[in-house]
Design a protein around this nucleic acid. Sequence first.
DNA 1: GCAAAATTAGGACAATTGTCCTAATAATCA
DNA 2: TGATTATTAGGACAATTGTCCTAATTTTGC
Lengths: 195, 195
Amino acid sequence: MNTRDKIINIADKFFYEKGFENTSFADIAANLNISRGNFYHHFKTKDEILDEVIKQRLKNTQNMVDNWDLENENPAARLKTFVKILIRNQSKIMEFGCPVGTLCTELSKLNHKAQNDANELFILFQTWMVRQFNQIEIYENANKHAMHLLMRTQGMAVIANAFRDENFVQTEVDNACSWIDEIIEKEGKNVRNLS
Amino acid sequence: MNTRDKIINIADKFFYEKGFENTSFADIAANLNISRGNFYHHFKTKDEILDEVIKQRLKNTQNMVDNWDLENENPAARLKTFVKILIRNQSKIMEFGCPVGTLCTELSKLNHKAQNDANELFILFQTWMVRQFNQIEIYENANKHAMHLLMRTQGMAVIANAFRDENFVQTEVDNACSWIDEIIEKEGKNVRNLS
DNA sequence: GCAAAATTAGGACAATTGTCCTAATAATCA
DNA sequence: TGATTATTAGGACAATTGTCCTAATTTTGC
């Protein structure tokens, strides 16, 4: 891997674990055993690194949801796979929160110009979930349901991070999965796309 | 108001709006027209200011929920008053997120020693909500329900902050209020404390 | 194998950070 | 009033920040 990509990867990790503002060039340089001056050849500013980190996250996230489409037979299972991300990444989320939510929250406080770019990560999930609801012919409330699931996962991540309670996460993931079943039972129409 | 209290108040505001790390002594001093060196007489460290800010928030929050107890006739109305904080503080929450959630999130990334103190703000709400559920003789699931409502308000705040969508907030507050009604209808027993 | 380009190291830079000192001023109380 | 205490201003301090320069080194392409 070239130095540029190494910088992006470590920055991605540190921005998540320590926060953007609280991660310095020195932190990244020390971790990669490169000199601080070396950065300027690859990135003109720290903000430019952030831009690339967000771009990479967007790409990785898109790949992830694309795989969810392939790996699951129906929209219900896909939506549950989304919710269960809280279980799969449980330890990291309990330690550092949601990578998307905490970044957006921080950039909002910093009034940072990359706010909109970071929000695209949310919008990616939102758009993908709307499509899942549409596939079972839920159209009118598709966006509301997508936002609701987005809201729940963010709430779970914040509380999981503060309380560090595994049982809470499991309970709320189960709740959210039940909610998905209920909504589909009530509003879902396209039976071919249901299990 | 004395200088010490002025410092705490402005720090409280700035820690919320700009974040703890991103608020400097210089910011506070400039806003109060006092010299930077003056701080040391009142607080030995920045962390000490944070401690006082959290103490003040705990006191104010306790007063707030105490008033909710007096102003509402039954637990259902009280719990809804809690949820509707998202409406009452809508513009601030859309701009800066939830004061409790964003502080806990930031302190977690900073691995700051005041994490547990900040979490007490969450616990205050949790404890208060458990008491509301207990009053209508919901005991077994009281804590799960309290955590659920805490989770929902945090999720709403994160999404409201990122999307800045008033309709979303209104819709989800309504959803949460409906959820309260449903739970009470299913599990509530003490009819004297119901409307 | 040599010239051009890409990459890196090392450090200078001005600005800002939290902390802490000293001296001046204001308030308090006998 | 005069002495003591509380409060404040102003700046020093070492450390750290992001930025940017130059010179050395490595890689690349002919």
